[in-house]
Design a protein around this nucleic acid. Structure first.
Length: 598
DNA sequence: GCCGTTTTCGGCCCGACTGTTTTCAGTCG
């Protein structure tokens, strides 16, 4: 389910991804990491449980909130769930100075490097504090040396098995990738599920956990299923040829590691509690806490084993997850919304949004062909888009700025002729579009006369990432103001493991997009997922319209629309907010309206 | 430390597993 050992308390080390920023203070992720640091060190220091847990709740709240730097200016950060006066002041200090008083106090007790030790599975805050106080172990290196030299062998309450586990898990940690991008996790999950399908019968085999919630990265893959012969199913799973190591193989659960350290857990569930267990293992941790807190007030105790009525002693179990929510008198909460913020309140009031679904998506407005940097031919892309059942789609090759890949104005006219000549050959309407570069001054890579010949224009930043926040903001706002620009492509430029995205004034860009009738893209290309669900949720408050695109450069990548959809659902978007959920005439009207306003 | 559709004070999710122990603390999901 939700926060795993290595991304919850303690695991605060930053992945080495460059973040371009001005000196405007910390990002939400960085502030959340500092709060988690306080939470973890406070637990180690023996502070009361509910005091340090408040920091954990606050951190989760912040990760799903709009940028704090902007909220704090108006004092609105105190309205976020889990943020009161004390933590609110800590956040203000963090933004101003990069540190805060409680953190400084704790750092006098423990060095920051002690948190490294918690990344070893099986070592929690109690053990880490003991290791520091009794053995002076203040870092992962210290621990490794102490284990190697046998200095812990005679310690009280540390038996042979415990030390062996620590040694093994320390090596595993050092070899492990921290989090895996969703698209990669999906493809691995599909692979193992295909493999399982060839073996003894399995039913209702599904990914749960962060993957089911469509988080942009996952810590590990949780699979659940039912089976008549659980033992046979587990044996097959544990003998998958891609498993580098089998961590556990019991009667209802097995865990394997793949090369690179990604862990996959399989749980075989009894059919009559499948619904309860799926709900439990989907998480998030914060969501389950919210659900159970509400249940307690109703005299119910919720767990993976069922819903216990404390008054009567009766227990409610179900094969259907939706009935878990129904039993507590709330609407079904889609997995993508189970963040632990306000979704339980909304479900109780019956005011959850009706999320956009894959069937609502009528077309894909962003894809490339061999005319620019795509792998597959124009007709192959048209045919594949038609095969997905779309009403329409757009071919959007690059503008000249993309070097040898870009289309000159002349080539662009040739492509337009080809597309027109193919019209009627396929059961889909093909729009002739362009993904045009936003140049460093905010002008576009084609003249307006050329742009006017496209059915649709996506404007994207591909160069000049290192410009200042103000300069990037001006570029995007100016692109929004161009009457021919329908969509801003991959708005933040983020690429997993490479680049965290250029920085700009979100409020200025989101309000410009809304004001000018320009859609913002949720780009579903595997390394992008840009906008993320969190950002899109913020943008939606400005009244922005979104485009869910694959940005495919080959036929198979067209399924990227599903990833974009996942982020839209995490943002709580309905189909009315999605440009490519509109019928073709309405889409064309959206484009025409903006062009005619100028 | 935060919070309120029984509360501004008195609560705060739940269970499984492991290793070390004679009854449980620590860790994890």
């Amino acid at each position: 389910m939700g926060a795993r050992r290595r991304n919850a308390p303690g695991a605060v080390q930053m992945i080495g991804v460059p973040k371009l920023r001005s000196n405007l203070g910390l990002s939400n992720g960085e502030i959340a990491a500092k709060l988690i640091e306080i939470r973890t060190l406070a637990e180690m220091a023996g502070q009361p449980f509910y005091e340090y847990m408040a920091y954990e709740k606050a951190a989760a709240s912040i990760e799903n909130a709009p940028p704090l730097a902007e909220l704090v200016a108006s004092g609105k950060h105190l309205r976020l769930p889990g943020i009161g006066k004390k933590i609110g002041a800590v956040i203000e200090q963090l933004l101003k100075t990069g540190t805060a008083e409680p953190l400084e106090v704790l750092h006098k007790r423990f060095p920051p490097t002690i948190l490294e030790v918690l990344n070893v599975d099986g070592i929690g805050t109690k053990s880490a504090a003991m290791l520091f106080d009794k053995f002076g172990i203040a870092s992962l290196d210290d621990l490794e040396r102490a284990l190697r030299e046998g200095r812990l062998d005679d310690a009280p309450r540390l038996g042979v098995k415990t030390l062996a586990n620590w040694r093994r898990n320390l090596l595993a940690y050092k070899a492990r990738v921290l989090r895996t991008p969703l698209a990669r996790a999906r493809s691995i999950a599909r692979e193992v599920m295909d493999y399982m399908a060839e073996g003894p019968p399995v039913h209702r085999l599904l990914p749960a956990g962060s993957m089911r919630r469509q988080e942009v990265t996952v810590g590990d893959i949780d699979l659940v299923c039912t089976a008549e012969d659980p033992q046979a199913v587990i044996a097959r799973f544990a003998s998958w040829e891609r498993a580098e190591a089998v961590l556990a193989e019991g009667s209802t659960k097995a865990s394997i590691w793949l090369a690179g350290g990604l862990q996959i857990d399989l749980r075989v569930l009894p059919p009559h509690v499948y619904g309860n267990l799926l709900q439990h293992f989907t998480g998030s941790r914060g969501h389950n806490i919210k659900v159970r807190e509400y249940a307690v007030r109703k005299g119910l105790r919720v767990s993976e084993n069922g819903i216990l009525d404390l008054a009567s002693g009766g227990i409610f179990t179900t094969a259907e997850e939706a009935e878990v929510y129904a039993h507590m008198g709330m609407d079904f909460i889609a997995p993508e919304l189970r963040s632990g913020l306000d979704e339980v309140d909304l479900a109780l009031k019956g005011t959850l949004p009706k999320l956009v679904e894959i069937e609502d998506v009528r077309g894909d407005l962003h894809m490339h062909t061999t005319w620019s940097d795509g792998r597959d031919e124009l007709e192959e892309m048209i045919e594949a888009a038609a095969a997905r059942g779309y009403e329409y789609h757009a071919i959007s090759d690059h503008s000249p700025g993309r070097g040898r890949f870009g289309l000159s104005a002349q080539r662009m006219r040739e492509q337009k002729d080809v597309i027109e000549s193919l019209r009627g050959n396929y059961a889909i309407h093909t729009l002739h579009a362009s993904e045009v570069d936003v140049l460093e001054d905010g002008s576009l890579d084609y003249s307006d006369e050329v742009l006017a010949q496209f059915d649709l224009v996506i404007a994207s930043i591909h160069t000049g990432f290192h410009e200042s926040r103000d300069a990037i903001t001006r570029r995007i706002v100016r692109a929004c103001e161009n009457p021919y620009v329908t969509i801003i492509g991959h708005p933040t430029g983020r690429r997993f493991g490479e680049f965290e995205g250029y920085e700009f004034d979100l409020n200025a860009v989101f309000s410009a997009a809304a004001r000018t009738g320009t859609a913002l893209e949720i780009d579903g290309q595997a390394p992008r997922l840009d906008l993320s669900g969190t950002m899109a949720r913020h943008a939606a408050t400005f009244g922005v319209t979104f485009a869910l695109d694959s940005d495919a450069h080959r036929v198979e990548a067209l399924e990227g629309v599903e990833l974009a959809l996942g982020q839209a659902r995490r943002a709580g978007l309905t189909k009315d907010q999605i440009l490519n959920a509109k019928p073709l005439p309405e889409l064309l009207n959206f484009i025409r309206t903006k062009r005619s306003r100028h």
